[in-house]
Amino acid sequence: MKLEKLIAMANQIGSFFEAMPDREQAIADIAGHLSRSWEPRMRQQILACLGTIDEEQLKPLVREALRRF
């Protein structure tokens, strides 16, 4: 799958949860959403890109959430 698309989808998820007042909870909810709704190969692909791409493409909370896998 196209990595840019996965990044865009992850950032969309981040946009919803970043409005929550509890940052820790928001990060956990992003991770939970990715875990509960993304098929493993999608998660693996986006996790594999950490460290290999300009991580500024990912919203900060999404970066945090991905690091918790």
Binding site: M1, K5, R36, S37, W38, E39, M42
Partner: peptide
């Protein structure tokens, strides 16, 4: 979870 329809196409 498995693939959703758009994910299947991708």
């Amino acid at each position: 979870p498995g693939l959703r329809i758009p994910n299947m196409l991708d």
